[in-house]
Design a binder for these strands. Structure first.
Lengths: 413, 413
DNA sequence: TTATTTTTTTCGAGGCTCGAAAAAAAGAGC
DNA sequence: GCTCTTTTTTTCGAGCCTCGAAAAAAATAA
């Protein structure tokens, strides 16, 4: 907020605004863009003409129903050939790389299953680089202009979106993926927390439901959270932040995977539910991974009869509910999306969650708090990464300051 | 982010930038402003010449030591006569109204002690209006141009800064102070949470220490928090938010003033410490107010010998520590200022706070977390209100869009 | 008194957005 | 089939704004 606004920033911002309008609404006409951005028709005309000449936008050739009188509107769309981005998703024993064209369509994918738990830093970096290379060097894709790579990873990343600071998928921490990938491919790279990418994807999918304030909670072996406040992705000051799973539910309580006691995750993570259902103590060593079938069987048992399984899910709901209640005390109640395998057992835990929330500051709005379920997190993470990467391209590469514009224009035209 | 940038916004923003630079740095010269804002000398020259003509800025006439060679720099300062704002602070049985000139100097104050607990909505509004009127209508102040009123209140306000939604100072809730004051005085009014104003004041006082991320915790009968994240005051989506005191420390635990169980406040508020020290149960009815002398006596006893007093402060520290730990899990560790009477007993509770934090996600940074103490909250709240009001004047009244500028210019010149 | 240094103002150039008018591209009416 | 009407899009000149360079201003140094 210290730096003044220069004259060339004006065009830069308005270009970005036009691109954003097109990305948001499919095939808006120039007139629609003008009214959406509140800029004059002349300005929109000038900017879109530039963008079309530079190969960023294109006129949509839909021989549509010209039912109205008057000159028909010409829809503008993103030119798919303007470039591509790479969305890479790394989680426990699973790696996917997806190439997405500028219009947002996935055009190629590479999926592999590396044994991440037994890999060191260098090995993990190498496996990611290899997956990216397999796609980038494919003969039919070699001509594409790669503009950006976004990496979504399970774990804590730094606030500059460059390093993985801690992760459950390998014993090693502090892995500088961005440096490694940038050196290998020579384009900007971001490294971000998977739950944050889920939040981005949700907003992208259903902007009417997830807009200004909402919470995405990932229930799997660990508990993750992506938080959007006032329309912006919330991150910590140093890290990706939003470590909902490591808020304290019960001081000096159950043993968490992070080594501390009483975290929400130590009650609501898959390993915690599993541990409790098996009758192991609260301080028993957390399992590194529990397969989906086992968790689904536990859920089925909990639905079927009273007993330790049901009790375990109840404890999980209680921890999540009190945690959400504390969170609501800080940020006010907001819509919640429950993502991941836990969503398929949500019918069992929802009553305990609501019961706990009712005992907290968010309690009076309990009825108004809605939970949406998204059992499959992988596509969401991929979508979020793609979207983040494309937004960067929109704002930083295709709407640059004046100096860069000359260069970029020459290159594209 | 949807609306494009118009040409006249440019000037508006750069004017605001220049005013902000002057407010921040005392008496900067045009050259210093140019380098701070990264705008050209010509632009700064044009803007500051306008601002001086409009009576917003003035050239400082300090016959200073011209030790250097060359044309001496002329410092610019805020013109105190450009207008005044009113900062009104309302808390339990206490009301103050302060008139502050445009340069930030307090020029008059009116302090009273209404019995708020026994007052209804209308009565409370009336007492505030009366205090404001006493100042505004004072003969020596009647000529001043009042531009803005900022009200700082103990309690929860709405996110539009217009209504008091809940407060401990009177049994009634939902009091629309902004409407009442705007109708009476015909100028914009904001109503904001006291702790948020404390945070604003701290940043104003010590920007080097409290800049991008910090936490102000108010320890008095209740527990309040003001949070600054990424340089912006954090508020909830509907309310003033940041209700740290009502995060859950212990599910189904001690009885809180809010009627729920286990809130941090139910362990760390004055009434909770008092209750514990007196040997009353955790579920005993909270006292509405406990005078400072009593609390100081409890603290002295806790320092002097082991026993229930010391235990009470220990429990308080534990609740605050685990609460900060949970907060740090969400936003990452940040500097903490302890404000209010509790700061004078901080030596007793700090060990328990640190012990608890060590058991949480923020634990590894325990040593790096600093606590500053500010025992007297009242002047901070006043300062924060004044600053908020002045910033609004800077940005919205003295740096308006083009249409308004013509009007404002005429009026001032 | 003149030269030097530093700050501030002045002035013309270039860019951007805007409003009005013109051009373009369709259907409606006869 | 031709002209009129309607709507979208482009063109064009005007008005601002910021910028860089040069000039002016105001002090010290020699």
């Amino acid at each position: 907020m210290t730096i003044g606004v220069r004259h060339d920033d004006l065009r830069k911002r308005n270009r970005a605004m036009v691109i954003a309008a097109v990305r948001r609404s499919g095939q808006p006409s120039r007139t629609e863009i003008a009214s959406a951005t509140e800029l004059s028709h002349s300005t929109i005309s000038a900017i879109s003409s530039d963008l079309i000449n530079e190969g960023i936008l294109a006129e949509a050739k839909s021989e549509a129903t010209a039912t109205k009188r008057g000159r028909p509107q010409v829809g503008l769309c993103l030119n798919p050939d303007a470039g591509v981005v790479l969305a890479i998703v790394l989680s426990l024993n699973s790696l996917s790389a997806t190439m997405i064209d500028y219009s947002g369509t996935a055009i190629a994918q590479d999926i592999s299953r590396p044994a991440t738990l037994s890999m060191g830093k260098a090995e993990l970096i190498e496996v990611v680089l290899a997956a990216a290379r397999r796609l980038i060097e494919r003969p039919d894709l070699a001509e594409k202009r790669l503009l950006r790579i976004a990496l979504g990873i399970q774990g804590i990343t730094d606030s500059d979106a460059r390093r993985l600071m801690w992760t459950p998928i390998t014993p090693e921490g502090d892995i500088d993926f961005a440096d490694a990938l940038e050196e290998a491919f020579g384009i900007p790279v971001t490294v971000q927390n998977d739950c944050n990418m889920i939040a981005v994807a949700l907003r992208n999918r259903a902007p009417e439901r997830y807009s200004d304030n909402f919470i995405a909670v990932l229930l799997s072996n660990g508990i993750g959270m992506g938080l959007v406040l006032r329309g912006e992705l919330f991150t910590g000051s140093h890290s990706s932040g939003g470590e909902f799973g490591h808020m304290i539910h019960m001081p000096d309580g159950a043993l968490c995977r992070c080594g501390r006691l009483g975290c929400i995750e130590a009650y609501a993570g898959n390993y915690a539910i599993f541990r409790h259902a098996r009758g192991e103590g609260e301080r028993a060593k957390p399992a590194a991974d529990i397969d989906d079938a086992t968790m689904l069987a536990l859920a089925a048992a909990a639905r079927d009869h009273e007993g330790r399984e049901r009790d375990a899910f109840h404890k999980a709901g209680e921890a999540i509910g009190f945690g959400l209640g504390s969170l609501f005390a800080l940020i006010d109640p907001a819509p919640v999306a429950i993502v991941g395998l836990g969503a398929s057992a949500f019918d069992i835990i929802e009553p305990s969650i609501r019961e706990a929330i009712a005992k907290t500051a968010g309690g009076q709005h309990n009825a108004a708090i809605s939970f949406d379920l998204e059992p499959d997190e992988a596509p969401l993470i991929r979508e979020g990464c793609a979207r983040q990467a494309l937004t960067f391209v929109d704002q930083e590469i295709f709407a640059p300051g004046q100096a860069m514009q000359a260069l970029a224009g020459r290159e594209v035209a």
